[in-house]
Design a protein around this nucleic acid. Structure first.
Lengths: 339, 339
DNA sequence: CTGAAAGCGCTTACAG
DNA sequence: CTGAAAGCGCTTACAG
């Protein structure tokens, strides 16, 4: 088979020949940063259209232009939560001529080096487990960074974007809501993680829950450290069997909340009569369980909008900012049958 | 604020100086394609480690090396299905030093031009709505392509990878299963799409369903053309109210199946006594609905493995293949309470 | 065994 | 108004 490499290799030179102008002229037409005589401009534009030419982004990036790639680091690509968010960001990015590269969080040091290879104009970090010192390293290196504030990032120095997605306030509201319904014995169910990556106190959801419980002088129980949903279910059942019966359960995300709910049901408790359950993320799961699950909804579209907004600002004028850009978003609690 | 650009700009030159060798030597050490005296090699390797150097991928790609970026085109980034798949692929890709760029399918012609800008070593197409002629264009251009066979791709010419994920056989098995349980009046619920992107007969799920119904001489009903889940629900309710009561429902994916199931329940029918329901993708939804939902499971890990496998083969030796690479995978039907 | 040099496809300061 | 030229950071054929 013949190599058809040529088909993808329409270069500036081809356009110059096709349009009968210098390569320089082609560049200036594309970048629009110098006056070019109307006639030449038209010829170039026609040639570009005719040959479907697009300047090679790598060559441009090499010369200091943008690569038009943004990296999104997530720790749970699988979850529906990120799916929606990525999908929204992708839509906005496409309009700005950007591509989104998606990557799970990797713990090895080499990961940062790989990112360093200069491919990305900016990085969005939506992972709760990406090491702080690595984030700092990337910021210090001058790469535009936008952080989704899943945990406490107040120690991070420098210029970057910070999007507080309202996890902390949302979690506090869950506690307030449960409290107002007379619930006093609250149970927090942490995420399950095969890699042992559970929430610590700088996790905003757990912290919001704990802080608000303190306000009410409640003594909540936290179930953490499970590697599978089955393990979590068993732990909850043990807890119930041992005589500790909560009257309110807050799951770190919807599936977790549902695992808890099912465990309660299995032990003969009624949701919501005996125990109220609230989840987080308001995924589709909420509408199909029985009872349907109340859940905290994060404003995905708003987040996506801010991610791109901050990223574009940082990419274009990073050096003009004195300190980090911040925005605080709200969550809303979607009430269904489980409370 | 000072520009800290320099921090991300450790180049081959820096390594050469640090190691006291020529830049050429550094290149050969990195690429390992020429003998370099042991001592120099060690010095270079040490300098690389000390300075955390990584060759600029764009410069390498410009010189004909790989960009180490693979593009994944999906039409439903949001769905849990793609989330899992992407996550698996990302894991494998990372080991091969590749990044996965994720992009929703865009219908405009310019989309292909953008892809052309030479950024990607290969493209995985997991979208059912990416125009066939654009796929052909990319293949003809010599870009390694792997297709997830969501619909019929038999008309595509040339060398590429094709992964048949078993949708057709899986759908036929659903019909067989329902038939064996005595179900004769079958209903297929198509996806909802705000952009009007519904299944046609080259969609393997719908085709598998229809073909197997023909084998049994059944006369199934297909509900398609809905833009929202509420609309779909209303349509099903109308259907039931009008007197057509199916005894078996097959949903194109799990949420769709659950919408159908809830509509039936709302109309007073019992699932599974009156009506059996089966979904597709075996997402988490299945375990939390009541009754729990039977569903066809696709082998995500196997698909991911084959995607990367074929992609690596095509990238490394595309020209050595005479025709397309194919693999047929199986699905399994996970039975739960809804049948 | 190794270096100087050409060149990948661009951008833009420099010099008309 | 416009062109020839330098250079981005690399790879590798060419010539020792």
């Amino acid at each position: 088979m013949e190599s058809k490499k040529d088909l993808r290799t329409i270069t500036r030179k081809d356009i110059a020949i096709e349009a009968g102008v210098t390569e320089t002229i082609v560049s200036y037409v594309i970048n629009g940063n110098r006056y070019v005589k109307e006639e030449k401009r038209r010829k170039v534009e026609e040639a570009i259209a005719r040959l479907n030419y697009r300047p090679n982004s790598m060559a441009r990036a090499l010369k200091g232009k943008k690569s038009n790639h943004i990296l999104f680091i997530a720790d749970d690509i699988k979850g529906e939560y990120f799916g929606k968010l990525i999908s929204e960001i992708d839509g906005l990015a496409y309009k700005e001529d950007y591509f989104i590269t998606l990557c799970a969080d990797h713990q090895d040091e080499d990961f940062v080096n790989r990112i360093y290879s200069k491919f990305f104009d900016g990085i969005v970090i939506g992972s709760a487990s990406f090491p702080l010192h690595n984030i700092q390293r990337l910021i210090d290196a001058g790469i535009p960074i936008v952080l989704l504030e899943i945990r406490d990032y107040s120690s991070i120095q420098g210029v970057y974007g910070l999007i507080n997605t309202g996890l902390y306030e949302g979690s506090r509201r869950v506690v307030r809501t449960l409290y107002e319904r007379g619930r006093r014995k609250l149970l927090f169910l942490d995420r399950v993680s095969t890699s042992g990556n559970w929430s610590s106190m700088d996790d905003w959801r757990l912290k919001g829950f704990t802080d608000q419980c303190n306000v009410y002088r409640l003594e909540p129980v936290v179930v953490s450290g499970c590697r599978t949903e089955d393990e979590l279910s068993a732990k909850v059942i043990d807890l119930l069997a041992s005589g500790y019966v909560p009257d309110g359960i807050f799951g770190r995300n919807d599936p977790i909340a549902l695992v808890g709910m099912q465990a309660c049901q299995k032990m003969g408790f009624n949701v919501p009569d005996d125990i109220s359950v609230i989840g987080f993320d308001n995924t589709r799961l909420c509408r199909f369980s029985s009872p349907t699950l109340s859940s905290v909804e994060i404003e995905q579209s708003e987040i996506a909008r801010w991610v791109m907004d901050m990223m574009m600002s940082l990419i274009d004028n990073r050096s003009s900012f004195e300190k980090r850009l911040e925005v605080y978003l709200d969550t809303k609690l979607v009430m269904r049958e489980s409370v």
